[in-house]
């Protein structure tokens, strides 16, 4: 099921890099944080598998918007950050 624009999501608070070698395209600063789906960008092979030459299942990629504050404890209300995130990093808010 493709998430619709406007859907509120939480980025998984997961740290695979603590469990061993990995290639993660989800920045540290959004792990565990709330965002809103801006749009579905398409479906792409999972880079976490591609990086290790493993069979890479195709995953939905979303543009997700995060409000600048409170993502950082500084900044201007109304500003935001758009990030490309794969579906397996998103959970219901």
């Amino acid at each position: 099921m493709t998430l619709s624009p406007g859907t509120e999501v939480r980025v998984r608070d997961d740290w695979p890099e603590r469990r061993g070698p990995c290639h993660i395209r989800t920045p540290h600063y959004v792990r565990g944080r709330m965002g809103m789906v801006a749009r579905h960008l398409g479906n792409f092979p999972n880079p976490e598998d591609l990086a290790f030459g493993r069979p890479a299942p195709v995953r939905a990629l979303y543009h997700v918007a995060f409000a600048q504050p409170p993502l950082f404890a500084e900044g201007t209300a109304g500003d935001d950050i758009l990030i490309e995130l794969f579906e397996h990093w998103l959970e219901p808010a």
């Binding site: 792409f44 950050i81 758009l82």
Partner: peptide, 12 residues
């Protein structure tokens, strides 16, 4: 003016 930062994290 609102500032929207785009962090280029994946395939685009």
């Amino acid at each position: 003016t609102r500032v929207r930062v785009v962090d280029s994290t994946a395939d685009y």
